[in-house]
Amino acid sequence: MRRFLLIAIPYAWLTVLFLVPFAIVFKISLSDYAVSIPPYVPQFDWAEGIMAFIRELDFENFVFLTEDDLYWKAYLSSLKIAISATFLTLCVGYPIAYGMARAPEEWRPTLMMLVILPFWTSFLIRVYAWMGILSNEGYLNQVLLWTGIINEPLTILNTNTAVYIGIVYTYLPFMILPVYSALDRLDGSLIEAAEDLGCSRAKAFWLVTIPLSRPGIIAGCFLVFIPTLGEFVIPSLLGGSGTLMIGKVLWEEFFSNRDWPVASAVAVILLLILVIPIVLFQRNQQKQAEAEQ
């Protein structure tokens, strides 16, 4: 009895507040828009049963998504931004993780805490901090104008460049930590062996260190890519009107246009796109866990 309750309580909680809501999103994505409260015509009526539901099923909202090229472009540009930002984060994060792994033993806990600390600080505040730096009269332009590197202030805020900077900045700890933990476990004698056998330092790094840190790189890339794809705060604060990201489109569809069926359809497709990287990520984690045992 006690065991039953122990399993049943969290199970029931997650079913009601996680699984059922998804079923509702899916259901509403198949219903029609209506000017009312709530603004949709329920497609599914328990009394009519499932057969009637299947007969009347229509994918009108999904067809709409393919017809209006705003959505196409938003998905593609989210994918493009997420992929490039992940790559940039890797390029920035890897040298930091590498430096941490080679730092003296007694520094490492402090360095580790310095990486984790920003992660605990409000996401919103960290994104907001860049608004003051990147704006036309912002600190970056002030410094660049003062040093005479540029004569005209650069327009960075409200462009995609600002979005990339924001993503790299906020997601950097997610990249550094898994890469660092992979590098930390790396056996230093392997590199010495490579060097003894005639590899240059750069070659040893390329042929030994990088391949052995691959699980960390893969984990870090997924940890950055997956949340970035549906990101809302960064494109809406740092991006401009030209920044198309699907999280922002969904938000506007819901709060500004109040078209719930289309917003739900946007969510369903985003989820379908995310299923692939999520499954791959879990495989990678499992493989790593098995390799450790």
Binding site: I96, G99, A103, L111, L114, R126, I133, Y139, I191
Partner: peptide, 29 residues
């Protein structure tokens, strides 16, 4: 592996500067 090359030192310095300067500016201002 306790050999911090100049490359490691530079990347650590720049990396942590990148992580912390925005917040320091925010606090100062």
């Amino acid at each position: 592996m306790n050999r911090l090359s100049w490359f490691n030192t530079v990347s650590l310095t720049l990396g942590f500067a990148f992580l912390y300067i925005p917040m320091v500016i925010l606090i100062v201002y």
